[in-house]
């Protein structure tokens, strides 16, 4: 088993496993505990979005996480085979507006962008969705 790859089913129960996987790899890459928590949260948000939007909470979907470390950069590549979605169209959250509209979501992508250097979505309809999260190792 390659410890730089994790494949899980799309169930929220597996989020703890995802966090553990990211924690270990980010630690190996040399990040501080503080940064590790930021990266872990960003990946948790990405996987939660996939479970919710790509697989609509169907617990049988596959989610693959891969770690790449090169040129001083720590990359997490997350691939799923669920429905295509374009989260980059989500506007920045406005908490007062959210309250008026009784919205309870929409914070995830904002946190991902805040805590990572780059968040890149690719979607090939009827094939796969991929999100790449990048963070420089200082």
């Amino acid at each position: 088993m390659n410890d730089k790859v994790l494949i899980i089913l799309s169930h929220t129960e597996n989020l703890a496993k995802v966090r553990e996987f990211i924690h270990q790899n980010a630690l190996n890459a040399g990040f501080s505990e503080d940064k590790i928590m930021d990266i872990t949260l960003a990946v948790d948000e990405a996987v939660t979005n996939i479970i919710k939007h790509s697989y609509s909470f169907d617990p049988n979907g596959e989610i693959k996480l891969e770690i790449e470390v090169n040129n001083g950069e720590f990359n997490i590549i997350i691939t799923d085979k669920g429905k295509s979605f374009d989260p980059t169209s989500v506007p920045e959250p406005d908490i007062r507006k959210y309250q008026r509209e009784h919205r309870v979501g929409g914070f995830g992508l904002y946190l991902m962008k805040k805590f990572m250097d780059e968040v890149i979505y690719t979607s090939i309809p009827n094939n796969y969705n991929r999100v790449k999260l990048k963070k420089k190792i200082h």
């Binding site: 928590m37 949260l41 995830g108």
Partner: peptide, 15 residues
């Protein structure tokens, strides 16, 4: 630890 799903709970009930 808290993720946005946890934050959402507070938004859901405050009003």
């Amino acid at each position: 630890y808290i993720s946005s799903a946890g934050l959402g709970v507070f938004m859901a009930y405050i009003e």
